[in-house]
Nucleic acid binder design. Structure first.
Length: 580
RNA sequence: GCCAGCGUAGCUCAAUGGUAGAGCAACUGUUUUGUAAACAGUAGGUUAUGGGUUCAAAUCCCUUCGCUGGCUCCA
């Protein structure tokens, strides 16, 4: 390929901008970068775009591409560039030009094109401030597979205080076939959407009466309980102790923790007997009170206190998204209290635990390091520096590839986040390891050190699943609803061939249930074909069919998900197979 | 919260200003079934909500609620 795909995508974004200017000569241009699956361009337009506009713009773009127009690059002295941009009323580009380093501003002109702005000589040309690179000519874009696919609002420069511009998103791939493949893949991915599967598999629901609050159905709870049983096993082995703290606590606690000052917008408040209370948005302050109940010794360290706790956060309505983003969720939280010398070892141990647990589920993750936010933080800058160095050191020693998110830390400390992709490639933060020198300070936590003197412990906040609802959502999409047998809400469906086999089917069901297997019997007077079809659609791992042939030999006919009919089996053998 | 789109039966969807309909699910009856959908019938709706325009509104306009995709924010 002659050009980098991003060069092609970005060049197309200029073609889009040219088309938009042809349609709206007064349009003001923002920026138009390449993204993972195409590009976008932000515009400030005289009217709101409607979906039909995209088809019109696509036609205009096709004409521009067909016109074999050359992308002509030229530099202008910065001062003249700004004057020009002011003259053509490209306010946003003026802002960008003013920030350019050096004395020159680079422009690209689509020479000889249909024309959308006028240059000094009155010649009609599309000109855009941009450093490139671009393809040589629009003729290089002829074979590209592209499509304008959505209109969205986006704040200028990503700041919600700024004006909201209209963003046009487009898909763009090297050729038309790749675009078609991509569209097909996305269509298939939508079948795995946890919201769709959640309804089809009867796992959970949402109701208008509780925006952002999940109703977990029996099958959803079954998966949840399996996950948590496993979680408790792993944490018990790793030396964690589990506590449970109240979800409503007095204002004074939140003032002490800093949440009242830094997190109030997201908290649900209430008054009890005239006193202010808040529903906990995080588990830590309750954990602090537990720690302070007695005097601790360095000999107890690392002290690992876990809490599977229910938190409530009033998230903005527009960010809610199925199980992935809710207003009330459970965290598999834990706080590790240790000395500063133990920090690296402990962070590393938590990293190992998260890695181990994700691997068992086959989840692929990437990690990000988030550092001190610009404002609204608690704790001294030395504390932050020390904390960031400790986390960086662990990542480096592990040889972990990580993305740096400057300024993205929590208000009390920096963090390592574990991110996982959903069905259509959006990434969600699940696990996190947060270092906190600040909370122990605020709560004046102490322990008796080796020298017999009081010292301040370091605290680590960590979750493996993160939000358990979100984790469940990720798992539904990861497995496309076909959970491994140990997690499946229903492990076995028992299907009697006809009414006269119900008694034996019940007996089989009872035996399986007594062996602690999650089993369902389908006693309806439907055809076997139909019962199999429905059990398959419910993605049940084992389907057991019983008729005369099985009753005679006291066995069951087994059908395994993904394998089909595997013949007759002894019930005890089936139990052994499922329990592995 | 902001920008845009959407909201019709339990579910998936028709009906574009003129009598709200289909398939599946549910219910009833018949069928007693051998590896992905038996047959027939019945019932199901103040078209999310409140208001407006009109002789007439699911359809056009406004309010509120909810959902979807983005933005900002975040587990």
């Amino acid at each position: 390929m002659k050009y980098d795909i991003d060069t092609i995508r970005h060049s197309l974004s200029h073609v889009l901008a040219a088309a938009v200017l042809e349609m709206f000569p007064e349009a003001k241009l923002g920026i138009g970068p390449a993204i993972d699956d195409g590009f976008y361009y932000d515009f400030d337009l005289p009217r709101t775009l409607i979906p039909e506009d995209l088809a019109i713009l696509e036609e205009k773009m096709k004409k521009i591409i067909q016109s074999n127009t050359v992308f002509e690059k030229y530099d202008e002295p910065k001062k003249r560039a700004i004057e020009f941009l002011k003259k053509v009323k490209q306010d946003y580009k003026v802002e960008l030009a003013e920030e350019l380093e050096g004395d020159l501003a680079t422009f690209y002109r689509l020479k000889g094109s249909l024309g959308f702005t006028r240059d000094d000589n009155g010649a009609v040309n599309f000109v855009d401030l941009c450093k490139g690179p671009h393809v040589d000519s629009t003729s290089d874009l002829k074979d590209v597979g592209w499509k304008l696919n959505k209109i969205a609002g986006a704040y200028w420069r990503g700041d919600e205080k700024n004006k909201m511009m209209q963003r046009i998103y487009a898909l763009a791939f090297e050729d038309k076939k790749t675009l078609e493949d991509y569209l097909k893949r996305m269509e298939e991915a939508e079948e795995r959407d946890h919201r769709k599967l959640g309804q089809e598999l009867d796992l959970f629901s949402f109701h208008e009466e509780g925006t952002g609050f999940v109703f977990l159905h029996p099958k959803g709870v079954a998966i949840w309980n399996q996950l948590l049983d496993w979680w408790r096993e792993e944490h018990q082995k790793a030396g964690y102790l589990e506590i449970r703290t109240p979800i409503i606590l007095a204002r004074s606690l939140w003032e002490q923790s800093g949440h009242w000052d830094h997190y109030k917008e997201n908290m649900y408040m209430t008054k009890i007997d005239g006193r202010d209370f808040a529903v906990k948005p995080m588990n830590c302050p309750g954990g602090m009170l537990y720690y302070k109940e007695k005097l601790h010794s360095y000999r107890e360290f690392p002290l690992k206190i876990a809490e599977v706790g229910l938190v409530h956060r009033h998230e903005l309505a527009g960010v809610l998204h199925g199980l992935m983003r809710v207003r009330s969720f459970w965290q598999d939280d834990a706080h590790v209290f240790c000395t500063s010398e133990q920090v690296e070892t402990e962070v590393n141990a938590i990293f190992d635990l998260i890695d181990k647990m994700y691997k068992k589920l086959g989840l692929k993750y990437h990690v990000e390091l988030s550092t001190k936010p610009e404002k609204g933080t608690i704790g001294s800058s030395e504390m932050w520096k020390k904390a960031e160095e400790a986390l960086t050191s662990v990542l480096k020693k592990r040889g972990e590839d990580y993305k740096l998110n400057p300024g993205d830390g929590a208000f009390y400390g920096p963090k390592i986040d574990f991110h996982i992709e959903d069905a259509i490639g959006r990434t969600w933060q699940l696990g996190t390891i947060q270092l906190d020198f600040a909370m122990p300070e605020k709560f004046k936590l102490e322990y008796i050190a080796e020298d017999g003197k009081k010292a301040r412990p370091v605290m680590l906040h960590r979750v493996v699943f993160g939000g358990i609802e979100r984790f469940l959502g990720i798992l539904i999409e990861h497995y496309a609803g076909a959970f491994p047998t140990w997690l499946a809400p229903v492990q076995v469906a028992v299907l009697p061939i006809s009414d006269k086999h119900i008694a034996y089917a019940k007996q089989v069901t009872e035996e399986l249930r007594n062996a602690d297997i999650r089993v369902e019997i389908d006693e309806r007077t439907e055809s076997v074909g139909k019962k199999i079809r429905e059990a398959e659609m419910q993605k049940i791992p084992y389907i057991v069919i019983v008729g005369d042939k099985e009753i005679d030999v006291k066995k069951v006919a087994v059908r395994v998900r993904g394998k089909g009919d595997v013949g007759q089996k002894d019930i005890n053998d089936l139990v052994k197979e499922i329990m592995i």
